[in-house]
């Protein structure tokens, strides 16, 4: 009996505040935009009885979706979000791998401290960490001041408000999410495997590609999901660092909602974003599940 109560409390909470809201988003994406509060016409309400619901079900239309597909702003937002997230995930992996590798190879007594220093920035505010880059990257910022000072450039580089700034922001903000799973899988590798490879005459780089790298693939997969999925829907980074030049779907959804106050279109944008991300999300869960079962 008590067992069911322990299950029910978090279960009901998540159903109510996580799952059901998605259905409401879907419902509102099918309703009409209107200038009122809240700014949409309800598609149906239970107070009108079942008869009216069934007549209205017949009238449901996917007009907002047709609108999104016909407008280039939205389709190119989806594409450029996916592209930016994919490139940024790859760059994060390139920077995180040597760091995680170095940590896993550091003396054992150092490792908890190194771990803590990777996690610490993750605990400090996301917004503040993105803000920190504005002062560095802008035209009269520190990076340009430094490069001008040493004479590497004669004109300030335009980095702020470009896609490059968004890449830097994503790599910087999501680096801990990539380092931690990589470190976890690298740290578990049995050193005797590498010794065996060495004894059998394998040069270190070959041992790395044939032993270490394949064994770290679960960490790479988990890290890439943890970066790619949230980065696709990222709002703060493209908004603050990307300027008007960078299109990303999270930003489009935000302005649809807060500036245009078009809730049905914002909902339809969210539904489509979720559909785009459902494959990586399910794959991520499947990988997590497998890792958990393998850990037993």
């Amino acid at each position: 009996m008590r067992k069911w109560m322990v299950i029910a409390a978090p279960y009901v909470w998540l159903l109510l505040f996580f799952l059901i809201p998605f259905f409401i988003v879907f419902k509102i994406s099918l309703s009409e935009s209107e200038i009122s509060i809240p700014p949409y016409t309800p598609v149906f309400s239970l107070s009108e009885g079942w008869e009216s619901i069934s007549t209205k079900l017949g009238q449901l239309d996917f007009e907002k979706y047709a609108f999104i597909f016909s407008d280039e702003l939205y389709t190119s937002s989806y594409w450029s979000s996916l592209k930016i997230a994919a490139v940024a995930t790859f760059l994060t992996l390139l920077i995180a791998y040597p760091l995680a590798y170095g940590m896993a190879r550091a003396p054992k007594e150092w490792q908890p401290t190194l771990m803590m220093f990777v996690i610490l920035p993750f605990w400090t505010s996301f917004l503040i960490r993105v803000y920190a880059w504005i002062g560095i990257l802008k035209n009269e910022g520190l990076l340009n001041a430094f490069l001008l000072h040493i004479g590497a450039i004669s004109e300030p580089l335009q980095i702020m408000n470009t896609t490059t700034a968004v890449y830097i922001g994503i790599v910087y903000s999501y680096l801990p999410f990539m380092v931690l799973p990589l470190y976890a899988s690298l740290e578990k590798i049995d050193g005797r495997l590498l010794e065996a490879a060495e004894d059998l005459g394998s040069p270190p780089w070959k041992a790395f590609w044939q032993v270490t790298f394949p064994l770290s693939i679960p960490g790479i997969v988990a890290g890439c999901f943890l970066v790619f999925i949230p980065a696709t829907g990222e709002f703060v980074i493209p908004d603050l660092l990307g300027g008007s030049e960078t299109l990303m779907i999270g930003k489009t959804l935000w302005s649809e909602f807060f500036n245009n106050r078009d809730w049905p279109v914002a909902s339809a944008v969210a539904v489509l974003l979720l559909l785009v991300l459902i494959v990586p999300i399910v794959a991520f869960q499947w990988a997590q599940q497998r890792a958990r079962e393998a850990g037993r």
């Binding site: 159903l15 829907g233 959804l253 909902s267 869960q285």
Partner: peptide
């Protein structure tokens, strides 16, 4: 259940925020 525990970890915040707002409305 395990899906609902792991999905929010990677769910873009704009989706979570919008869906909860529409629930409250």
């Amino acid at each position: 259940f395990s899906g609902m525990i792991f999905a929010p970890l990677v769910m873009p915040e704009v989706i979570t925020g919008l869906s909860l707002l529409l629930l409250f409305v």
